[in-house]
């Protein structure tokens, strides 16, 4: 059974159909990278997965259970699904440490000491062990994004969603964030990554999905997608971004 199974997902904003018929399945431990032009529905798809957007139609099975109709259980479900945003969205009034340990203490009723220990461990892992008492505004974009990753990891999610995690960063700061993501992939984290970083897709992805116009146009191993794309739209897109 796939960890995550998206079936016939559709999403409209008023008359605008952003997702038409999306089918994606993610196995445990798999790293799936989603690429595609702006407006292809990648981010909306990701936001539907943890119900930040309510799908208009279709089902999303998480461990075999349809979560689209889960009602009040949605907060329980979201605890298992971490999300990393393009614009980090750290809590500005909380220190880096509090950003990471707040959710586990409040939602998982973890003891403060334990949560703190774990948070420091995670912050060390993303290379920010020396910044735990800083505030987000004192950090660079790349550092903030690594805190955001640690914050998501602190809830011990089964799957991590990345919504263009490096798009808001200065080019020289992208590397550190990708490095952390590679490390997570190596450790067997299940990840769905929407990104424009083709290098990352090639190197880390188990599977690459190309979306366009609200559909999954093509999906395959990175090698197959990048060296021998089948669909014309995939070819056109890759020709543009890889030139």
């Amino acid at each position: 059974m796939a960890l995550l199974d998206i079936k016939n997902l559709s999403k409209s904003f008023g008359d605008l159909e952003v997702l038409k018929d999306v089918n994606i399945s993610v196995e445990k431990g798999e790293v799936v990278v989603v690429i595609g032009p702006s407006g292809s529905g990648k981010s909306t798809m990701l936001r539907c997965v943890n119900l930040l957007e309510q799908p208009t139609g279709g089902e999303i099975f998480y461990q075999g259970e349809d979560i689209v109709k889960c009602g009040k259980e949605v907060t329980q479900y979201r605890k298992h699904v971490g999300m990393v945003f393009q614009r980090f969205n750290l809590f500005p009034l909380k220190t880096v440490l509090d950003n990471v340990m707040f959710a586990p203490t409040k939602l998982n009723k973890l003891a403060k000491e334990e949560a703190k220990e774990k948070a420091i461990q995670l912050l060390n892992k993303v290379g920010l062990g020396n910044k735990i008492l800083s505030y987000p505004s004192e950090l660079s974009g790349g550092q903030q994004q690594r805190v955001a990753i640690a914050r998501a990891l602190a809830m011990e999610p089964d799957i991590l969603l990345f919504d263009e995690p490096t798009s808001a960063l200065d080019p020289q700061l992208v590397g550190d964030v990708l490095e952390v993501m590679k490390q997570l992939a190596k450790e067997g984290m299940t990840m769905v990554v929407v990104t424009h970083e083709m290098g990352f897709a090639k190197e880390v992805a188990d599977r690459v999905i190309f979306m366009d116009g609200g559909y999954v146009v093509e999906e395959d191993t990175p090698h197959a997608i990048f060296s021998a794309p089948k669909d014309d739209r995939t070819k056109a897109f890759l020709a543009r971004v890889l030139k």
Binding site: K79, F85, L90, A103, L107, R151, M155
Partner: peptide
């Protein structure tokens, strides 16, 4: 307040009220 704050909170598993 940046709507991203709300989304970050929800994504962690907090309710709208929290």
């Amino acid at each position: 307040i940046d709507p991203g704050q709300r989304e970050a909170g929800l994504a962690l598993g907090f309710s709208e009220k929290q």
